[in-house]
C-alpha cells in the first residue's frame, strides 16, 4: 500500500529554513522604502526599440524642471542607459547602513542604474556556476531590481519613474515586487508588430489588476530639420491598439533627430529645446501624469 504523506502545510511546525521569513523581511523593507514616494510610474512596453528609456529620461527631466523631486530607476540591468541619458556622474555612491544614495543626474533627478555600478565595458555577469546558469540568473536579476528599489535611499519623492526592459516577463517581475504601481505607461510605436506585442503586455497588465494603465504612442511621425512632419509606420495602429485594449492614449510623441542626439549626450531635449514638437508633446504627457497623480483611478 502506498504510504500517504501529509502536505507541507499540514505539518504543525514552522519551517526552520527561515527563507519565507527572510522574503517577508525583504518585502517589508521595500514597502517601507516606497512609503516616501508619492507616485510610482512604470514605463513599459514588452516590445524593444520603442524609445522607453529616452522617453523616461525626458519625462523625468520635464517633471524635475517643474520642481518635482524625481527618481529614475533603470530596470534594464543588461542594457542600462538611463544614467547616461540623465548625465548621472559615475562617481562613488555614498552608502551607510540605511542604504545606498542614488546618483544625481540632470536637474537633480535621483538615478540608479546598473551602468553606475558596472565597469564601463563590463556586461552584466554574476559570480556562480556557469553550467545551467539560466536556472538562477532570473532570480539574481529580480533580486538586484528589488535592491534597487528597497536598498537605495530614494528619500521623499513625488515621482519614481521605472524604466523596464522589453519582454512581458519583465513586467511580471516588476509586479512581483510592486503589485500595484500607481501608473503604468505602455509605450508603443505606430506599427502592426508593436500593436501585436504591446497588446500582450496590455492584457497582462489588465489581468494583473493594475489600476491605471495608459498608452503612449512614440515616434508617431518624423519631424525633419525644417520642422516638416512626415508619417512613419502604419497610421492608425495605436488607435486600434487603444480600441482593442480599452486603454486611453495619454501622449503622442513625434521623433526628432535632436531628441536622440541630445538624449544620448545626457541633455534631455525638453530642457535644451522646449519649443520643439517632441518637447511640447512630452510636456503635455507630464501634464497628464501630474493630473493623474492627483485623481483617484
Amino acid at each position: 500500500m502506498m504510504r500517504r504523506f501529509r502536505t507541507y502545510h499540514e505539518l504543525p511546525h514552522e519551517t526552520e529554513s527561515g527563507i519565507l521569513e527572510q522574503v517577508l523581511v525583504q518585502r517589508a523593507r521595500l514597502e517601507r522604502r516606497l512609503e516616501g514616494v508619492r507616485t510610482v510610474a512604470a514605463v513599459v512596453s514588452g516590445k524593444g526599440g520603442v524609445g522607453k528609456s529616452a522617453l523616461t529620461a525626458n519625462l523625468a527631466a520635464a517633471l524635475a524642471l517643474r520642481g518635482a523631486r524625481v527618481g529614475a530607476l533603470d530596470a534594464d540591468l543588461n542594457g542600462p542607459s538611463l544614467g547616461r541619458m540623465l548625465a548621472a556622474a559615475r562617481t562613488p555612491l555614498a552608502e551607510d547602513e540605511y542604504g545606498v544614495r542614488p546618483a544625481t543626474g540632470a536637474f537633480g533627478v535621483r538615478v540608479m542604474s546598473m551602468d553606475l555600478i558596472l565597469a564601463a565595458d563590463a556586461p552584466l555577469r554574476w559570480k556562480g556556476p556557469t553550467a545551467d546558469s539560466f536556472i538562477w540568473r532570473g532570480s539574481a536579476e529580480t533580486g538586484a531590481l528589488r535592491e534597487f528599489l528597497s536598498d537605495v535611499a530614494w528619500g521623499n519623492l513625488e515621482w519614481l519613474l521605472i524604466d523596464l526592459p522589453p519582454g512581458t516577463d519583465r513586467i511580471e517581475r516588476l509586479l512581483d515586487l510592486i503589485p500595484r504601481p500607481d501608473i503604468v505607461l505602455l509605450i508603443a510605436t505606430p506599427s502592426e508588430i508593436a500593436r501585436f506585442v504591446v497588446g500582450k503586455s496590455a492584457r497582462l497588465l489588465r489581468e494583473s489588476g493594475v489600476p491605471r494603465v495608459a498608452i503612449v504612442a512614440n515616434m508617431t511621425a518624423y519631424v525633419d530639420d525644417l520642422g516638416v512632419t512626415h508619417q512613419l509606420f502604419s497610421a492608425g495602429s495605436v488607435d486600434l491598439l487603444a480600441e482593442e485594449t480599452g486603454l486611453p492614449v495619454w501622449g503622442r510623441i513625434p521623433f526628432e533627430p535632436a531628441l536622440a542626439t541630445l538624449t544620448d549626450a545626457g541633455k534631455p531635449i525638453v530642457s535644451v529645446h522646449p519649443e520643439t514638437l517632441a518637447s511640447r508633446a512630452i510636456s503635455a504627457l507630464a501634464d497628464r501624469l501630474e493630473h493623474a497623480a492627483t485623481e483617484s483611478p
Binding site: 551607510d96 545606498v100 555600478i117 563590463a122 535592491e147
Partner: peptide
C-alpha cells in the same frame, strides 16, 4: 544595503561605493 548585488556581481567598478 544591496548585499546581493554587491556579493554576486562580477565586473563591478572598484570604487563604486563609498562608506559614510
Amino acid at each position: 544595503p544591496m548585499e546581493l548585488t554587491r556579493s554576486g556581481l562580477d565586473g563591478a567598478r572598484e570604487d563604486v561605493f563609498e562608506t559614510v
